[in-house]
Design a protein around this nucleic acid. Structure first.
Lengths: 242, 242
DNA sequence: TCGTCCATGGAACAACGATATCGCATCATG
DNA sequence: CATGATGCGATATCGTTGTTCCATGGACGA
């Protein structure tokens, strides 16, 4: 008869999820959930111990939704670990914006030990993405450190977006932070022609231009090359820059 | 007789603040606050309209503490707008870590319109810092955009830090994200000696190293310089890199 | 058929947010 | 000085929510 209990559990959770999405966390009271699910209070306390237990299971339900969406969308990508990081970021933010009450339940309650245990699975997904990037040599920091940075930044933008009224939500902030943060923990692709030769030559040439332009033409102070050498150097730099 | 009311108000707020810091948001009930402050329920409802009103005033109290600390600490800095951004970041995170319950009340409740109005003052402080940076020519994005990015990132790391147990809190994550985010919205100082010559020379040298090392020694394919020229170029680059 | 066990459901308890009613003190006025 | 009006505060109360107790009823085995 354990089968019936599981069916009731799932039904109660679905009803609670509906209440949460429609009415926010305020609408999720034990009475409202029990009444809407057609059960009485004691059965709700037999299925889940507490209201906290119910909310924990509800958070797990939300994480299951989240992981289902995310795994499906990420499965399409062929084999670019860093591109997966970008898509993972956007999927995370989209989930938060489209399910704000769930997101608050899942990521908003940050009491120093009461982290919903179901969050570990979502955490593991991000760790997996980063581990794959690390194995491809695209990570410039340890996996754990990259996880913390990306997790903190994504939850920050998502909560900020949820806090704004929908009309004035500005997704460019998320995109900017995403590009910045991911670029800061990843490294450029191995570049079939080696490191970025042309741009580095250009950058050095520009720096030389600025240095020389700021000084009396023939002085050359601060640059350990003579003018003729400098001219030849810059000639070569421009050749490398093509 | 308005004087007495204000005194009672402040006393109630101080008591509520103590309860909040010691027992978390759970400990802040109208009854507990009223009892601890030595007033009865109706006076509490005359001073503040709701419990929400009390919490809003409590959030304002927290913002006042926060602004006092921050203004005092920032006043010491002479005149480096970007350095102020770094210090402002650290002060924000420190406040959150040292007053987690207050921080949750101030920044954790993100219902799409119930942002505590006292937050505007703290927001204005960040905007002021960024405006000064913009006036000094150190900002590469609009002030408002920089505000959103920094605000989202700081609240994200702070909430993540609060969510971890104190022993394993890792401040390096905050530092890394801070450096990355602030660097992404600011520009390098006008550099009395021009752009970063040495590092650019080093970068180019490393790229050449990688390019040459990945190919048969004498081939030189893909590099438009002959081996002798390349040797001299790299000699000069290393001179520039000191 | 009867007895035992156990889940169930209704009711009730405790705590909370919020408010109404009553008493009292203060003050103005005859 | 006496008396009525006025406004404030405290007690008592209401409605709601989380949680649990206890009696009831049915299911299952002997």
């Amino acid at each position: 008869m354990d089968e019936g209990r599981r069916a009731v559990r799932r039904q109660v959770l679905q009803v609670a999820a509906k209440l949460l999405e429609e009415g926010g966390s305020e609408a999720v009271s034990t009475r409202a959930v029990a009444a809407a699910a057609g059960v009485t209070a004691p059965v709700l306390y037999r299925l889940f111990d507490d209201k906290d237990g119910l909310l924990a299971e509800l958070a797990a339900y939300g994480f299951a939704m989240y992981l289902a969406e995310k795994r499906e969308a990420l499965a399409l990508t062929p084999d670019d670990p860093v591109a997966d990081l970008y898509r993972g970021w956007d999927l995370h933010v989209d989930f938060g914006v489209q399910h704000p009450a769930f997101y608050m339940l899942m990521y908003g309650t940050v009491e120093p030990g009461r982290r919903p245990p179901a969050a570990d699975e979502a955490h593991a997904l991000l760790v997996g993405l980063l581990r794959r990037a690390a194995e491809a040599g695209r990570l410039r920091v340890p996996v754990e450190e990259a996880t913390r940075v990306i997790h903190a930044a994504t939850t920050g933008v998502t909560l900020a977006l949820i806090g704004e009224e929908p009309p004035q939500r500005d997704l460019t902030t998320s995109a900017r932070l995403r590009d910045t943060v991911i670029a800061s923990v990843t490294t450029d692709p191995p570049a079939p022609s080696g490191p970025d030769l042309a741009s580095r030559a250009l950058a050095l040439d520009a720096a030389l231009e600025a240095r020389l332009g700021a000084e009396p033409p023939a002085s050359g102070a601060g640059v350990p090359l003579r003018p003729t050498e400098m001219a030849l150097l810059r000639e070569w730099l421009r050749q490398l820059a093509v």
